[in-house]
C-alpha cells in the first residue's frame, strides 16, 4: 500500500508576521513543514516501520523552488520520493486542484493532509482534494491504523471518537495527536535526501477563484489599567468612554 502525504511549506510558527500589502514579508523568515502535515508524515513513517504493509511514502507540495529544503527534510526523515508542483499555492482550491491533477498519475491508497496549515489556516485543501479525486474523506482524524489491508481511522466526535474502516482509497485530514513528536532527521537521512527522487512538474492552467483584498494584523492590545478600589467613578467612566462596553 502507498501513502501520499500533502506538505505545505509555511513560516516557522514563531515568525514575527509582517505584511507588504497582501503579501507576507518573507525577509528573514524560516520555512518549515506545516506542523500538522509533519505529524501526518510521522504517522505514515510509523506505519511503514511497524510492518503494516506500507510500500512507499510520497510527499507532494505546491510551491516554488524555495520550498525544496522543506521537501528534502521530509525525504531526510524517511519519505521515499517527492513531487513538487512548480507554482505558488495561491489558495485552497488552486492547491487542491493542482495536487488532484498530479495525484491521478501517482499510485496511492491513502492521502494524508494536515487538518489545516499554520499560515492561512484554510482547513479546506483536504476535503476539496478528496472531492476532486472522487474519494471519501475523513476530517479531524486522530489515529490511522492498518488491519488486514484495510484502513482503520479514528475520528474525533463530540465527547468521544468514531472508528471507521475503509477498504478503498481514502483521504484523511489529521490533527495533533496522530503522532507524538515529529522526527528529527538523522545525518545519514540528510545525506541521502538528495539521492531520493524529487519530481518537479508544471502547474496546469487554472484560474484562481480568490483574491485577497486586504490583510489586517490583530490590533495590539492596550496595556492593563489599574484603578483604585475606592475610585469606582473612574472605572465606570473608562468602561463607558474608553472601552465602550457600558
Amino acid at each position: 500500500m502507498n501513502i501520499l502525504v500533502c506538505l505545505s511549506n509555511v513560516p516557522d510558527t514563531t515568525t514575527k508576521v509582517k505584511f507588504n500589502g497582501t503579501k507576507l514579508e518573507t525577509e528573514g523568515v524560516q520555512w518549515i513543514i506545516n506542523p500538522w502535515d509533519e505529524l501526518a508524515l510521522t504517522r505514515a513513517l510509523e506505519l511503514k516501520e511497524s510492518g503494516a504493509g506500507i510500500d512507499n511514502i510520497s510527499v507532494i507540495t505546491v510551491g516554488l523552488e524555495d520550498a525544496e529544503p522543506t521537501i528534502r527534510k521530509a525525504l531526510a526523515i524517511g519519505a521515499d520520493d517527492a513531487y513538487r508542483i512548480n507554482s505558488e499555492a495561491f489558495d485552497s482550491f488552486y492547491t487542491a486542484a493542482q495536487i488532484a491533477e498530479l495525484a491521478k498519475n501517482i499510485p496511492f491508497d491513502l492521502i494524508m493532509t494536515g487538518f489545516e496549515s499554520a499560515d492561512y489556516n484554510g482547513v479546506a485543501v483536504g476535503a476539496m482534494l478528496a472531492e476532486l479525486l472522487d474519494i471519501p474523506s475523513v476530517g479531524a482524524v486522530s489515529a490511522v491504523n492498518v488491519k488486514d489491508g484495510k484502513w482503520l481511522i479514528d475520528r474525533e466526535i463530540d465527547g468521544g471518537k468514531e472508528v471507521l474502516q475503509f477498504d478503498s482509497r481514502v483521504l484523511v485530514s489529521v490533527q495533533k495527536g496522530i503522532a507524538i513528536d515529529p522526527r528529527i532527521p538523522a545525518m545519514r537521512g540528510i545525506m541521502n535526501a538528495r539521492r531520493k527522487p524529487l519530481n518537479v512538474s508544471n502547474p496546469v492552467a487554472l484560474d484562481s477563484f480568490n483574491e485577497i483584498i486586504a490583510i489586517e494584523l490583530p490590533r495590539s492590545k492596550s496595556k492593563v489599567k489599574l484603578f483604585d478600589p475606592e475610585d469606582v467613578q473612574s472605572l465606570l467612566d473608562a468602561l463607558r468612554n474608553e472601552a465602550h462596553v457600558l
Binding site: 529544503p69 528534502r72 527534510k73 531526510a76 513528536d181 528529527i184 532527521p185 538523522a186 545525518m187 540528510i190 545525506m191
Partner: peptide, 17 residues
C-alpha cells in the same frame, strides 16, 4: 549549505526538545 542548516536544526531540535 542546506545540509549544514538541516544538521544545525536537528541538533537544535534535539537539545531544545
Amino acid at each position: 549549505s542546506e545540509e549544514q542548516l538541516m544538521i544545525r536544526q536537528a541538533a537544535r531540535d534535539y537539545a531544545q526538545r
